[in-house]
């Protein structure tokens, strides 16, 4: 029994998956209230699924990439659940969940690209060979700088929809936002195949903004 959630995109999404099917799912889009909405959303899906916490055998969490403040809400919640319940925490790249959901909603059979909004006129993105197989590391770039790599490829995700002049193959049928149901289903498949998961650590992809001040000259005595 997996409890999955992801806060790396504007969506606050949680789901319960019993190893065979999704038992409950809830997704809200509110980029500024991840911290307030995640726990109530988790509570809601557990109730709806009729699943008690002691039945949960693993936590699945989207590890980004994503804007940091929201991303950390999901990761620290996952780490705390894992510790308090004594169950493993499985990290999954957020873009992988979107790719998997796109595969379910659309008949993508060849290579495609997933992109989310990284703000500051950049996107988080990766290329996929098929909906279960990522073939590049997630990266953060200005759309214009990756135009050659993504031109003509089918494209999914809110980042692709934002920059249609670069992501020329945007698929209108594919879901725009992350869904924990897709993340949980993907994790469940990977568990069944005995595949490795990512550690539940954030994929920031950027350094913190901070500048060493010019300051004054040192006048240490002696």
């Amino acid at each position: 029994m997996l409890l999955a959630f992801d806060t790396a995109t504007p969506a606050i999404t949680a789901a319960v998956h019993d190893g065979t099917a999704v038992r409950a799912e809830s997704t809200q889009v509110d980029a500024r209230r991840h911290g307030e909405l995640l726990l109530p959303t988790v509570d809601e899906v557990l109730r709806e699924a009729g699943v008690k916490l002691d039945a949960v055998t693993g936590i699945v969490v989207g590890v980004g990439p994503g804007p940091y403040t929201g991303l950390r809400v999901g990761l620290v919640t996952a780490a705390a659940f894992g510790d308090a319940l004594g169950v493993p925490v499985y990290g999954v790249c957020t873009l992988d969940g979107i790719a998997y959901a796109a595969g379910q909603a659309d008949d993508l059979d060849g290579p495609f690209v997933v992109a989310t909004d990284a703000r500051r006129k950049e996107v988080y993105w990766a290329r996929y060979g098929d909906p279960r197989t990522r073939i590049t590391d997630p990266a953060v770039d200005r759309p214009a700088d990756i135009a050659d790599e993504v031109a003509g490829l089918p494209a999914v995700g809110a980042g692709a929809a934002l920059y249609p002049e670069v992501f020329t193959g945007v698929r209108p049928q594919a879901p725009v936002h992350q869904s924990a149901a897709a993340l949980a289903a993907l994790a469940s498949e990977r568990l069944a195949r005995g595949e490795e998961f990512l550690p539940a650590l954030p994929l920031y992809l950027r350094r913190p903004d901070a500048q060493v001040p010019a300051g004054y000259k040192l006048v240490m005595p002696k």
């Binding site: 726990l39 950390r72 705390a80």
Partner: peptide, 19 residues
């Protein structure tokens, strides 16, 4: 600090809920 507070608040909620 908003972002710093949020880490502690999220952790506290998850522990309180799970326990």
């Amino acid at each position: 600090l908003a972002g710093a507070l949020l880490v502690g608040v999220s952790a506290a909620k998850a522990y309180a809920y799970a326990l």
